[in-house]
Design a binder for these strands. Structure first.
Lengths: 241, 241
DNA sequence: TTTGACAGCTTGTCTAAACAAGTTTATAGT
DNA sequence: ACTATAAACTTGTTTAGACAAGCTGTCAAA
């Protein structure tokens, strides 16, 4: 990372995870961080603010930055993390089956709001994948990527990691996403690919992902077996005036 | 709110929602904000950073702060918002039935980790409530509040708003929470209170809420009818070094 | 017409300083 | 032994300034 605050954030985070700063202990004070890293106080404070934001510490005035219990990475996580990144972090035995690949599909464009408001249908690349975890098919991912942003996608990228291709090869800057989680009855496709009984339920995560320049480019529908689904979140209470 | 950044955050947020700054437009530049509000640039930047964090704007270098589509408040929301606050914001017709109130209950203390690690059981006040939305019972909330933090809770507080009592009456500063969402088959209690068939599924949200001094004080199990459940989230991608 | 350089905007990063306010500890006085 | 005060820590807020880097339009040169 280029900026100092992120470097310090990563360093402190690593030391929290390695229990150099264990649960219930205090991080070095802001002034100590200045000396330790050779930075100004505000720079250190930015790193601490991010740690607090993500649930690793709680800042207490007059005392310091307390290391608190944070959510471990579970599957699937909140945040934008690609499946491959996640599986790697967790050491999960996983396989990726591309069961559909259509480089010339169409999608109603009302989903991609700001971009092309006049066009009613947008050309997309459609990818359908089944995630097999420990030998059991658990998730169906349906991705639709705007061809105006990503003209071509090699099938091998879908088989390995889509994000590695988008960020690494194409240099796209993936910035943010909105997600919606609902519970829905399994449809025929679900039952077929995931070998489920009738009456089974699915956790469905629909998300729109956008680039740093605010162009939405990817719509995803991720359908999870109910019994395999878990979502963890950390939230801070906002005080409104 | 006391600090300027929060004041400006609230003011900008209001103007975004009232479409003074509509979707797709740019907020005043940072230097303009300085003049508009009579503040320094860093103070304005803190307000903008919070707006970006919560998904209202996307900052684009060289251009400005673009107003992007943000999640409307849906039910239930991410974040820590009390049921009453939420229902009020949404104008939902809602009723609150306290179906259980035990001021002398016990709960395994391993949930409240840092506080009392040696004690195996913690004294809590147990509250069970059914949320009735538009005449239909939709949610069962089971709350357990540590008596070491909140010694007594009037039953009327449970009938109206628990958070209003904790923050308003007792002056407690509720700071953060970790949540976990899973899908589980409905149990007998669910079926009884929510009038469900056998084989019905529930969305279960378990959460631990803590104060500003990092003391966890509340464990909640919120059980939602599957067909009424929806969770919306906004996430930014983190770049790791 | 096209190209290229540049000025003037924008946000991003970083620093140094000052003061307010909450916590802890040492100390002096009772 | 107890208490009140003060000093020395902590984080919280705010400012002013500097320079880097990305975007856009202007204007002059080719």
């Amino acid at each position: 990372m280029r900026n100092k605050a992120t470097l310090i954030y990563n360093d402190l985070l690593q030391k929290i995870e390695q229990e150099v700063y264990p649960l219930g202990s205090y991080l070095p004070s802001e002034n100590q961080l200045c000396e330790l890293y050779g930075i100004s106080r505000e720079t250190g404070r930015k790193a601490l603010a991010s740690l607090a934001e993500n649930g690793y510490i709680q800042k207490i005035r007059g005392k310091g930055s307390l290391v608190i219990e944070h959510r471990q990475y579970e599957f699937p996580v909140s945040g934008i993390v690609s499946y491959q990144e996640l599986a790697h972090q967790l050491g999960i035995q996983t396989r990726n089956e591309v069961v559909g690949f259509n480089p010339n599909a169409q999608l109603p464009a009302h989903r991609f709001t700001i971009v092309e408001p006049t066009v009613t249908v947008a050309p997309v690349t459609a990818i359908k994948r089944v995630r097999v975890i420990n030998g059991e098919p658990a998730i169906i991912d349906k991705d639709y990527l705007l061809k105006s942003v990503v003209p071509t996608i090699p099938k091998t990228a879908a088989e390995t990691s889509l994000y590695a291709y988008l960020e690494g090869q194409l240099g796209l800057q993936i910035a943010y996403a909105t997600k919606e989680i609902t519970m829905e009855p399994a449809n025929e496709e679900d039952r077929e690919y995931l070998q489920l009984d009738k009456g089974a339920y699915m956790a469905v995560v629909r998300s729109m992902t956008s680039l740093a320049d605010a162009r939405p480019f990817q719509y995803t529908e991720s359908r999870h077996r109910a019994d395999k689904f878990r979502f963890r979140d950390f939230a801070r209470r906002q005080k409104r005036g």
